[in-house]
């Protein structure tokens, strides 16, 4: 493959006290890949994503970002995080700011952009997620789906090289799930590199270039979506998928 490797996870493990949550995780993501991580609740998907942008410190193992180990001491974590965005299940929009300010603050304070420039780019990303009309609203005045679209715009405004999504639609009412998935699908088509933890199996099947199935803190199976969803090899995968595809 000629595409550049963006991130590589190497023998990563994470324990909380005596509780081993992730064990020997190994996989890599190339530019333009859309990797979906699926698996039952408690299998360690969130912990893995949080290790990737250092919200949690991996216990052992390394994470290489463009070949550089970012779990080493002395790495500028903030600078690294400005290149790897994250969209949370609970949105985590800044409650004290308007929609527009949410999308500008990082550009101004972290990327040191001029205000006018930041505003212009914030507007264009809000436009992209269909939230441009709401620039003056505060997060508490928006629906869940709208909040999540703003959160995506906020992450995009940093122009990240990799965007992580942790169950971005799990906190949404069913009728709002579609609007968020639509936006994400558009981003996938534009070639944004993404790692997405999701329970939306149809979405994972249609959008991803690679699927990782996690079970009890290990990668039980990974491969192309067609292989995972239509010809799973691991009985655990079959069992997990049957619960989702039923009915």
């Amino acid at each position: 493959m000629s595409r550049e490797e963006v991130i590589r996870i190497h023998h990563l493990s994470k324990t909380f006290g005596k509780n081993v949550v992730l064990r020997d995780i190994d996989f890599s993501v190339c530019a333009g890949d859309v990797t979906c991580i699926i698996g039952a609740s408690g299998s360690g998907k969130s912990t893995l994503l949080r290790c990737l942008n250092l919200l949690e410190t991996p216990t052992t193992g390394e994470v290489y970002f463009h070949g550089q180990d970012i779990t080493k001491n002395g790495i500028d974590e903030a600078a690294y995080r400005s290149k790897v965005g994250m969209v949370f299940q609970s949105f985590n929009l800044f409650n004290n700011m308007t929609v527009l300010d949410n999308c500008m603050i990082g550009q101004i304070k972290v990327l040191k952009k001029k205000k006018a420039q930041a505003r212009e780019s914030a507007l264009s990303f809000l436009e992209k997620v269909g939230m441009a009309p709401y620039i003056n609203a505060k997060p508490r005045q928006l629906s869940g789906g709208q909040k999540q679209r703003v959160a995506i715009a906020r992450a995009l405004a940093m122009e990240p090289e990799l965007l992580l999504f942790d169950e971005p639609t799990s906190a949404l009412d069913p009728q709002m799930v579609g609007e968020v998935l639509d936006v994400m699908k558009k981003l996938a088509q534009e070639g944004l590199t993404m790692i997405i933890v999701t329970h939306e199996m149809a979405f994972a099947r249609d959008v991803s270039s690679h699927v990782v199935f996690m079970s009890d803190g290990v990668i039980a199976e990974e491969g192309k979506p067609d292989q995972i969803f239509n010809h799973p090899r691991n009985p655990k995968t079959t069992e997990f998928l049957s619960r989702f595809m039923r009915g």
């Binding site: 942008n53 919200l55 903030a78 600078a79 690294y80 995080r81 400005s82 290149k83 965005g85 994250m86 949370f88 609970s90 949105f91 985590n92 929009l93 800044f94 409650n95 603050i105 990082g106 304070k109 972290v110 990327l111 959160a151 906020r154 992450a155 940093m158």
Partner: peptide
């Protein structure tokens, strides 16, 4: 704590 995580995720340091 989600507010702090949201801020960290866009690369803000503790002071910011």
């Amino acid at each position: 704590p989600g507010q702090t995580e949201g801020a960290k995720a866009i690369g803000m340091n503790h002071v910011q």
